[in-house]
Simulated assay, not measured.
Amino acid sequence: MHRNRPPAVAVVTGASAGVGRATVRELARAGTSRIALLARGRAGLDAAAAEVRATGAEALAIETDMADYQQVEAAAARVTAELGPIDLWVNNAFTSVFAPFEEIEPAEFRRVTEVTYLGFVHGTRVALDRMLPRDEGTIVQVGSALAYRSIPLQSAYCGAKHAIVGFTHALRCELAHQRSRVRVTVVQLPALNTPQFDWVLSRLSRRPQPVPPIYQPEVAARAIVHVAKRPGRRREHWIGGSTVATILANRMAPGLLDRYLARTGYDSQQTPEATDPHRPSNLWQPRDDAAGDDHGAHGSFDGCSHRRSPQLWAVEHRRLLTASAGAVGLGAVAARLLRRRS
Rank of each mutant, 00 (worst) to 15 (best):
T246W: 06
P231D: 05
T264V: 14
D302L: 12
H278W: 05
A228G: 04
P286M: 01
S242V: 08
G255T: 07
Q209M: 12
D276R: 04
N282D: 13
V244T: 09
H295N: 07
P280V: 01
Y215W: 07
P280Y: 01
W284G: 04
T271P: 01
H306V: 01
D294I: 06
R222V: 12
C304M: 08
W284H: 07
H226T: 08
G241R: 10
A220P: 04
Q216F: 05
M252P: 05
T275R: 15
R235H: 14
G232D: 11
R259Y: 12
S281M: 03
G232P: 00
N250V: 08
V219E: 06
Y215P: 02
T264K: 13
L257M: 14
Q270R: 14
A249P: 00
G241H: 09
H306M: 14
S281V: 01
R230E: 10
P212I: 03
P280R: 01
S281T: 06
V211F: 09
G241I: 09
Y260G: 10
F301S: 10
R307Y: 03
V225F: 07
G265V: 10
L248G: 03
H306L: 15
A274N: 06
D289P: 14
P213V: 03
E236K: 11
W284S: 02
D289I: 03
G255F: 09
S300R: 13
E273A: 14
P272V: 11
I224N: 03
R279D: 00
P272C: 11
E236W: 12
G292C: 10
T264P: 00
V227A: 05
T271D: 09
A274C: 04
E236P: 02
Q285C: 00
D294T: 06
D267E: 15
V225W: 04
L283V: 01
P208A: 07
T275P: 00
M252S: 15
D289L: 04
A220M: 04
S300P: 15
G292S: 10
I239A: 05
L257Y: 08
R234I: 07
T246E: 10
P272W: 07
G292A: 08
R235E: 15
Q209C: 10
A253W: 08
H298G: 08
K229Y: 07
L248T: 13
T271M: 07
R308L: 07
P272D: 11
V227L: 08
R307S: 08
A221S: 10
P210W: 00
S305A: 14
R234Y: 06
A228L: 05
P272A: 09
L248V: 15
N282F: 00
P254K: 13
A223Y: 06
L283Y: 00
Q216L: 12
H226C: 08
H295F: 14
G299Q: 06
H306A: 11
A220G: 04
D302Y: 03
